[in-house]
């Protein structure tokens, strides 16, 4: 019964994604449909149009396995062997350095803006 509920709720989430994709194509927005679907669902949840229990189980199933869902896309790297050469190493170093600088700077800035917080963990 619980698995059936998960499957049905994934279709509910898929429907939002589909509506998002249709809207994006229709309005020529340079955004992916899933992001619009996310915003639509959020709006529906906050306004109470869609009760949270309609998506709770589906979201609870999909979100913890999010990394698994990325794997087929990441395996696609195998089609670009030039990225695994010396040239690729330079490109990777640049992304890594830029990501780390951004990560640390943003984290420190956010921490500073927060000021003193009691619930450190």
């Amino acid at each position: 019964m619980k698995y059936l509920l998960i499957v049905v709720q994934i279709f509910v989430l898929y429907a939002f994604c589909w509506v998002g994709t249709v809207l994006v194509t229709w309005l020529h927005m340079p955004l992916p449909g899933s992001i619009i679907g996310l915003l639509l669902l959020l709006g529906c949840l906050l306004s109470g149009i869609v009760p949270a229990k309609f998506v709770k189980e589906g979201a609870g199933f999909l979100l913890p396995i999010l990394t698994l869902l990325f794997i087929p896309a990441t395996v696609g790297i195998m089609n670009y062997p030039q990225l695994l050469s010396g040239y690729g190493v330079v490109l990777v170093i640049i992304v890594t350095a830029s990501t780390l600088i951004t990560f640390i700077l943003t984290g420190k800035l956010a921490r500073r803006m927060e000021g003193k917080v009691d619930d450190c963990n």
Binding site: I10, S34, L41, L42, L46
Partner: peptide, 20 residues
């Protein structure tokens, strides 16, 4: 792989739940 890939869209939409 494409069947797993298809779930990526609903999973991005599912992120609305923790936001809510």
């Amino acid at each position: 792989g494409k069947f797993i890939n298809w779930l990526l869209g609903p999973a991005v939409v599912a992120m609305a739940y923790p936001l809510y």
